[in-house]
Amino acid sequence: MSITGTLRTVRGRALRSSDAQRPVEPGHSHTNWVQQRDGRGIWFVVPFVIAFILFTLVPVGYSIYTSLYNTRLIGGTVFSGFQNYTATFQAGAFWSGFIRVIIFGAIQIPIMLAIAFFFATMFDLGIAKWGGAFRTIFFIPFAVPAVVASVMWSFLLEPQFGPFTHFASALGFQGTNFLGTSLIFPTLILIVIWEWTGYNMVILFTALKAVPREVIEAAVLDGASLAKVVLRVKLPLVRPAILVLVFLNAIGALQLFTEPLILQAYAPQSISNNWTPTLYLYNTAIGGQQYNLAAAGAVIFGLVIVVVSLVSLVSRRRRGEFA
């Protein structure tokens, strides 16, 4: 490969010098010369492609392979076809996790995006004072690792000494257990909203800023009220950005792992080992050492995420957002 590359370059160079002496249309000689040189570009791309094959394609391929086999104590590894897939599909634990994260996303994402959109609009219109400072503050949780965020919040909400628990009982809600079975879901929603609202807000703010001022001015000249400008002019124009955020947050919700795992230490009764799909996979593979079964689950889980991403990609492309 390298030899042909060099040869081609040498020929390219020869061609180029003769081109320079010969008066031809410049455009033609230019493109010709670039194409001669182009074979070398592969060397720039090869390191990434190799790393990608080794650390993404090979693992995925190997998981699919593993998922088709079964390892028994007696008899070793035997081909089992789709047995692991049927087992996973029939495992209520796997699907209950999926349903849980879907409900989680269905509640958490709209609330968070509504808050983010409200603040982004207020900052964009300049109605709030000190908008720049607030934007920076709201964004800070993005710099906090999910593990630390979960540890912080589990301290704050801890049923015995947590300050928020004291606060709740001072307000008349004695014996509130934020980490108990009935409140664990809203608690996790609260934590995720804390982590991601600022990030979503900054993206919406950027999108709102990109709306041309002429559009707004025209609406104002037509006598549109503030609410109309926001809901009828700005909101439709940033809808693509909102759509992207919906999908990104949905994929994030599907992968919910760190927060419930950390909180599990404080609330083992509230969060089971199968609470989310990733928790199920983790506990099946690492805890249960059932590699083949976990591989089938991982393949299904990966497929679900790819499908969601593909839907997002198709819907964005249909809007002509990117080619």
């Binding site: 650390f55 993404t56 693992p59 593979a285 590699y291 991982a298 889980f301 990966g302 991403s309």
Partner: peptide, 12 residues
């Protein structure tokens, strides 16, 4: 494909 979906396959 997010890295979380690749993690278990990498482990195998």
């Amino acid at each position: 494909v997010p890295i979380a979906a690749i993690t278990l396959p990498l482990y195998f």
